[in-house]
Amino acid sequence: MSAPPYSYSYIFKYIIIGDMGVGKSCLLHQFTEKKFMSDCPHTIGVEFGTRIIEVCGQQIKLQIWDTAGQERFRAVTRSYYRGAAGALMVYDTTRRSTYNHLSSWLTDTRNLTNSSTVIFLIGNKSDLKDQRDVAYEEAKQFADENGLMFVEASAKTGDNVEEAFVETAKKIFQRIQDGRLDLNATESGVQHKPSQPGRTTLTDQSPKNTCTC
């Protein structure tokens, strides 16, 4: 008996970046667990989450790296950009400073990923309407000028969270089909048809080398 494909056929690596406290971990948690973490501690390091989604009839496994936003870790978190197929760049719609730093995050992303990496801008905390500090139109213009995809989302209500992750995957998949994203490139951030599925792959995906010291 043969049946439709049993498991995923692609693995996409994502990173989530942005200033401290913009809600990166909450977005990840909302996406993987469909829950809001109300008192989420600062991420000191890089958290890891995974979920399988369907895009254009393909099962795609997302491996998501959620990075620490604190400035002092900036140099270290740069290690994690390498080999990301998607970068979710997050700011807080209620804190202008987090928006102002976007160009620096964007510079890092452009420098440290490859040209086919899909960058998605997320204005988080859209539920806090009366505290808004960055106008939608302004951010939209920034996104357009820099060729980014953009939504305002809320990790609290879940509004637009799924869309951001899925739209990014769609775009990546589209780039694979266009041939813009070379599957054979070592750092495309995409793996096709894992021969060793599951946890093994997950480890192999780790962007770091083991130390021989």
């Binding site: 390091g45 890891f48 620490a68 270290v76």
Partner: peptide
């Protein structure tokens, strides 16, 4: 501090 197959802690 890397956990094999999981997250990293700084």
């Amino acid at each position: 501090l890397h956990l094999e197959g999981g997250k990293d802690i700084f």
